[in-house]
């Protein structure tokens, strides 16, 4: 199945892409997806699935849009 992963802020510079579509096996979790693109596990972040917060163990679905952002705290 296909999911889109979108990075925000310094994640873009760290991983060298802003957004891409990935082919992932069924039952891939949000946490597993992040590991596939080598996102630093220790770094504080907020991950959303189709605009809503997603738990690490939640499985992603075909057509999902997963967004990974640092935890901004307001200007």
């Amino acid at each position: 199945m296909k999911v889109t992963i979108k990075l925000i802020g310094p994640f873009v510079n760290q991983l060298g892409f802003s957004e891409k579509e990935l082919e992932v096996p069924p039952a891939t979790t949000a946490e597993g997806l992040l590991a596939m693109v080598k996102i630093d596990k220790a770094r504080p972040k907020i991950v959303t699935r189709n605009g809503r917060a997603v738990a690490p163990a939640e499985e992603v679905q075909d057509g999902d849009r997963i967004v990974v952002s640092p935890i901004y705290s307001g200007g």
Binding site: K6, I8, G9, T48, R65, V67, S69, P70, Y72, G75
Partner: peptide
């Protein structure tokens, strides 16, 4: 940086 995030989360 927060603009793209605000756009994603409505």
């Amino acid at each position: 940086g927060v603009l793209a995030w605000c756009n994603e989360v409505a």
